[in-house]
Nucleic acid binder design. Structure first.
Lengths: 218, 218, 218, 218
DNA sequence: CATGAATGAGATTTCATTCAT
DNA sequence: TATGAATGAAATCTCATTCAT
């Protein structure tokens, strides 16, 4: 036995002893890491380093690597669905509301590469993790609801074609932007053109709106 | 010159002394494994087992895991581009030719999940491997050429709108099918509907043709 | 400030939670292994076993096998240069100081076969690893400085010949002992005589002093 | 069964069906490979490639990798000993004969890095292979004989000191050149000077002669 | 005598997770 | 709540040697 004088640090370290902050830092670091490397490619060590948190904390808050991944996935999905609701597209006339939704979707994909990347990763995994999530299903009825409303009003007023499946249409709206952005690296390589350049992105946005509205025209 | 009697085995054993066959078996097994598990998730051991070849042969023929992956990627790209050329769409009238191309693309994505999966994997990797490939760029000019021809003829005869960018259009044709198929697992989960079912696939095919032709109408 | 009771273990176990000791144990084991087997011949597994550490720790502390090798090399070089400084040869008269340096060098080579072996290994490798080291160059100016001082003083007082290159002389001092020790196995074999025997070593020591001082005589 | 026409090559391939040539090509390639990479680092595949011979031939002529290494070692040793005999130093007066031997030794080391490298490798191995060689011992008595003769005559005529051990002296002559050349990579690195440069090599040659003759002076 | 595809054993390296403090 | 050293299992890759032709 021995008596020793121990100096305790005057100030808390950045991520120390603040549960909420530690958890958020881990989640942010994990999102970046899973986005960049995929599920298998991501390193728990790297997430710990990036977040400034101790590795043990990851296991404390999220159980294991897969639990952390699922938390990232749910958080990321929730973000876009929440933003969509904030558009209040049903306050607008059908054509205008639809245009706002299309443009929002496109610009969201540009601004949030992590959403694209995580979805690609999850689909490579046959949605195994997403299927375990309770919260996910409920997140999507508002989206379907708002598209249905726009389509019905547009059909009634004669500006949209009739009998359009809202889910099918949403998939088309998403597809036109998602594929372009998620595959921009291979597309740029095979076609020898920089699809990430600002003016190419703008052209694509215009094209997407044109395609969807051309289809909806009765 | 010399006449010699050669005994030909009734059936070559899978792991026999037949380099071409060994190489092809490894490539096939690797395609399946990378498709199912991604680049990081794929196991060299599993590929060796599936192919019936000795693990050492993988390194002999392809250098390392990444070299094998690149070979798989090139082979997979070459397959779809070769099949497209075989369509001879420019032998048809513009609308018909375009419809054949759209339907082919869609059915190819259904029949070749490995193409979708490998592209998703490669994009998660920012096309790092594809960029190293010499063969890839050349593979794509015929595709752009055939779409350009159809668009020009259609515009000249008044059945298509003018000044459509052929690459932009191809991305749209691919996007409408690619996103649906590659993301069918998450889409089925979030919308609670089986997008892999036969009738859903047929409906999507019809929808894609409708969307593209509606857009092209002048 | 805080007073705390800390239990200190009577003796730390070899593989305990003591980073400094683990690192040192790995370094010691690696020195022995690289000395005995060379860079390629050394086994990471063997180093782990000899050190009592987990193999994973080697990668934790030293990056990879080559990083470990470089650490061994730097440590080994630092040891002899530090010991040389401790001789304080410039506190002596020139002839005496020179004799002390020669005898020290010879006895160091006898006592430290790892130094000889690692240098031979590194030279087979064309000093590829040493060139990457930052610390190495600085380690050697004191040595050159002390030899220069002795030579200048000796030349001034007429006991040494003039214009002797201190680096050339050091190489000669080292060569006479290094070659004998490092090549003692082949020399013993080809000349049929045990050059590792105590009296042979003593004779060589005397010879080396004779040779160097004979050369320095004006 | 199947009848097939097989074309037999009109000309022999470079290394085909010529046993002596094949064997020599393998030996030359092996010398280069063992020199550059050491025993463990050398690759049997690389030797086969460099020699243009089939890998199986290596096993046919030399048994295994170690047998090949021993053959290289013996051949290399025989070359220098044969060249020394060709000097006929005992036809000269003692000082001149000694100078010729010293200068030959130094220039041989410069011209034959494979000798230095193989000896270093073999000593790292504690001469394990050399000890197995029958031919080696006999190769060295002429060398000792010629030095003894020079020393005796020089002592008798008063130009050399008495009672010099010829083997001890040979080790010194070899050491002064061998260490410089074999360690030139690390020496250049630690002293920041290119010891491989032509003028440095010349200076060293002069120095070696000076040192040895200064020692021999009575 | 000659070929080069194939093999099995073993090497280095990676990684999620746990443990002692 | 927090730390980061330590671990075991498994991954990728290497290599001398043999085998079928």
């Amino acid at each position: 036995m021995e008596v020793r004088i121990v100096k305790r640090p005057a100030r808390k370290p950045a991520s120390g002893r603040d549960p909420a902050r530690t958890r958020a830092a881990i989640l942010a670091a994990a999102t970046a890491e899973f986005t960049a490397k995929g599920l298998k490619g991501a390193r728990v060590d790297a997430i710990a380093r990036r977040s400034g948190a101790n590795k043990r904390m990851i296991y404390h808050y999220f159980g294991d690597k897969q639990g952390l991944y699922l938390a990232v996935l749910e958080t990321t999905y929730a973000a876009i669905r929440t933003a969509e609701i904030g558009l209040h597209v049903t306050d607008r006339d059908p054509v205008d509301g639809m245009r706002v939704l299309i443009e929002f979707t496109w610009s969201y994909f540009i601004a949030h590469p992590e959403f694209l990347s995580l979805l690609a990763t999850e689909n490579l995994n046959r949605a195994a993790y997403l299927k375990k999530s309770r919260r996910i299903r409920d997140l999507h009825s508002p989206l379907v609801g708002m598209i249905s409303t726009l389509l019905e009003r547009g059909a009634a007023s004669g500006v949209f074609r009739k009998r359009v499946d809202p889910v099918q249409l949403y998939i088309t709206i998403a597809a036109l932007g998602f594929f372009y952005m998620s595959n921009r690296h291979t597309l740029s390589t095979i076609f020898g053109r920089d699809f990430n350049a600002r003016d190419e992105l703008d052209r694509r946005g215009t094209h997407i709106v044109d395609v969807v509205l051309a289809y909806l025209r009765p």
